[in-house]
Design a protein around this nucleic acid. Structure first.
Lengths: 221, 221
DNA sequence: TAGATTGTTAATCGATTAACAATC
DNA sequence: TAGATTGTTAATCGATTAACAATC
């Protein structure tokens, strides 16, 4: 029943839920009362209908037999499950191109809406030329201020987008600030204590692993 | 035996192979003749020794019992398997922050080495203010030139890093140029014919799915 | 009611891990 | 040789899919 009793939901499930959420968010001219079937939603997300139902079933019963899922209701439930029902403060450390890309994307999409979603509310860098600049109304601060600001602004998520060489150092600073959740985009391995949840998202790996499939490129007619 | 006879290697395996490759590339002061065991390599990559051996076994026998894998040899084999033994030309379409980040990262890491790896060799954008600018020696061209340039420079990989709204349009242009392999970083679904291999890498999804784990953040002691 | 679609169970498929004989 | 570590098989684990009774 309650999603707090569930055993251990796999990361793959969570990623698909985010996808479903965004698809529902992005439906244009939507009537929130209208129903969508697992088949239709699966079509939009690129997965099977059975998988959509299974994924949702981990968290409750959101549909009606013979009808489907009411868009507005399912949307709300997904926001709830994924903690998108209240503002979550995000700090981004390292404002190179990648940091900028992440900051801008999330700010454009979410900061302007009053209601919920991710709020990028602190930006840090080391480069004196960047410190003091404003990005969508948020001032870039020196990394030394991480500790103070993280507590002051009650930052809940931290994203590392610094060059490889600096990643571990920044990680230590975040750990000192008591952070237990880190998303690392730097293309390197960083080490953290066992009780800290570290997610790695290496975008250069995305590009590199594709090279493997090149052979097939011209071969396939 | 030969890697061309293998059934269907899963994407997860390929991603780990890239990781192994980069780990071997990045070992400092390495003696290429020195051996590394599956246990050690697994440690560095964050996977079990058995998995390392299984992953490699898909492509051949690269180690010696009682010894391990010679670093230089395994490195070479991995480069070979992953098509990193010759330059692969990459085009990046859309030079916002994300496109810049990808371009810079790969150029810094790979373009300077003469030998192999990914070569970012064409950049495209639509913004007149960007066209004509140089990035690491490569001139930014107008997207209308995609078709000509892709053929001229024999581009093998194409990366889309444009805003959501433009993604599908760019995809069509690439398809017209005969491209069969697309990596899409735009946070949206684009549709392609069945014979085109489309990889999606949505970095904002990385950030968003993390929100789910927030509950655990403060709870875990 | 008849048709549609859910939630759920069981079957299938695939990926990871453990174990071990082979062998350097 | 003895110790170490591979390549590979078999066991385990988990995730996806198919199927269907329940029911709107």
């Amino acid at each position: 029943m309650s999603r707090f009793r569930t055993p251990r939901i796999s990361d793959a499930v969570i990623r698909r839920l985010v996808l479903y959420m965004r698809i529902l968010d992005d439906i244009e001219d939507k009537d929130e009362e209208m129903a969508i079937s697992s088949y239709e939603l699966g079509e939009l997300a690129g997965v099977r209908a059975a998988q959509v139902r299974k994924d949702l079933a981990w968290f409750g019963e959101f549909g009606k037999q013979g009808v489907g899922y009411k868009i507005g209701f399912l949307r709300m439930q997904l926001h709830d499950i994924l903690h998108f029902h209240r503002p979550v403060s995000v700090a981004i450390v390292g404002l190179g191109h990648l940091g900028m890309a992440l900051a801008r994307y999330n700010m454009d999409r979410y900061n302007e809406e009053e209601k919920y979603y991710l709020k990028v509310s602190a930006l840090f860098d080391k480069d004196p030329r960047k410190i003091g600049l404003f990005l969508c109304g948020i001032k870039i601060l020196h990394v030394d201020e991480i500790q103070t600001i993280v507590k002051e602004k009650d930052i809940e998520m931290r994203v590392i987008t610094v060059p490889r060489q600096g990643a571990q150092e920044v990680a230590y600073m975040l750990l000192d600030a008591g952070v237990k959740n880190i998303l690392n985009f730097a293309p390197t391995t960083i080490s953290v204590p066992d009780d800290v949840k570290l997610h790695n998202a290496d975008i250069s790996l995305e590009l590199q692993h594709l090279a493997y499939y090149l052979g097939r490129d011209k071969a396939t007619p």
